[in-house]
């Protein structure tokens, strides 16, 4: 295995971590206006992710940095190409980050309402756009011989990518709902459980539709075959597993399943891409790959050492932080946010 492959795997790992962790943050943010019936309940909802959302988001910053360091052409083409989408995503992330911190620092109900909607849109817009962006990466975009994206913003809004957006949106919402089942109590928990049962089937139908569409709109069959192999199958199975455990009220397992589903779906998408990182639909020769988009072997070597030393350390203290904040949050808890 060469370093280019290692870095493709490492970036996959970063996105797996990012989507599993930030996935439920987005879901919680999306559900905030619908599950919180009063200010205290809304505070409880925000406080369930209060100590961890920022650390979760760093998975994205690290993935972005890793793409820049390991595959500069991927970084350059992706972010200059998906320009307007990224702009909207960044606006969402900016207002959301500030909203968490500022929301409860003033008692004025209008102040809080504005920030609550900032949390909602700052979660909903990225949750949707991530699916759109990832779907486009496998669908193929207009990349020319100079590795530049020459399409428009509206080219990115093709039906397949929009379906991808709906899939990520509903999946994250489901993931967030199950997370709230595990982190809240009493009336709020009841409502979260009802919501889980309502979102579950919708997410399942849309994700299955997206999987079917992937066979038609991408080169999945050429690339992985009709039977795509273990990971994609396990991804689908975990979705049904989530449905089973949610319906039998075993929510810990339900959360494991939605996490598995998100993680395995990300791996599937990256398997579908490999060894490409951005597919050109103008000419397959112009696709960016882990070889023509990469940094020099020297940079990859140095970065490999850094990543292999620090990633386990990060995992260690993040896991500890989840352990510290493992308890449910209730309206009687001391609410920081």
């Amino acid at each position: 295995m060469d370093l280019n492959i290692l870095w493709f795997i490492l970036i996959t790992v970063l996105f797996v971590g990012f989507f599993i962790l930030e996935g439920f943050d987005y879901g919680v943010g999306i559900l905030l206006p619908f599950l919180g019936k009063n200010d205290t309940e809304r505070r409880v909802i925000i406080n369930t992710i209060g100590p961890v959302w920022d650390g979760n988001e760093v998975w994205l910053l690290t993935a972005g940095g890793a793409i820049f360091a390991a595959f500069p052409h991927w970084y350059a083409t992706l972010f200059s190409g998906f320009y307007m989408a990224l702009f909207l995503l960044l606006l969402g992330l900016i207002v959301r980050a500030v909203a968490f911190e500022y929301r409860s620092k003033d008692e004025n109900p209008r102040w809080r309402m504005v920030w609550d909607w900032a949390i909602f849109f700052g979660s909903a817009v990225p949750a949707l756009l991530w699916g759109v962006a990832i779907a486009n990466m496998v669908y193929g975009v207009k990349i020319d011989a100079e590795m530049n994206y020459v399409g428009t913003f509206f080219d990115l809004l093709n039906p397949y990518a929009l379906l991808g957006g709906l899939a990520s949106f509903t999946l994250f919402t489901l993931h967030g709902a199950v997370y709230l089942d595990l982190k809240t109590t009493d009336a709020l928990r009841e409502r979260a459980m009802k919501m889980t049962l309502r979102v579950g089937p919708v997410a399942t139908v849309i994700v299955v539709a997206f999987i079917i569409a992937t066979y038609f709109f991408t080169d999945a069959i050429e690339h992985l075959g009709v039977d795509p192999g273990f990971v994609p199958m396990a991804s689908l199975l975990s979705l049904f597993g989530a449905a089973y455990f949610v319906n039998t009220k075993r929510l810990g397992w339900g959360f494991v399943m939605t996490s598995l589903n998100i993680g395995l779906s990300v791996i599937t998408i990256f398997m579908l891409l490999f060894p490409r990182v951005l597919v050109s639909n103008l000419n397959p020769e112009w696709s960016l790959t882990i070889y023509n988009a990469s940094s020099s072997p020297k940079t990859l070597t140095i970065m490999s050492f850094v990543a292999l030393i620090f990633l386990p350390i990060v995992l260690g203290y993040q896991a500890w932080s989840y352990w510290v904040f493992r308890h449910r949050v209730s309206i009687k808890s001391e609410l920081t946010y």
């Binding site: 920022d54 940095g65 390991a70 620090f310 990060v314 203290y317």
Partner: peptide
């Protein structure tokens, strides 16, 4: 790109997790 990625890995994770 390397220092930016290292910054995220060594510093951003540390700051965000321990701020929480």
């Amino acid at each position: 790109g390397a220092p930016l990625a290292i910054e995220a890995l060594m510093a951003f994770f540390l700051e965000s997790t321990f701020l929480g």
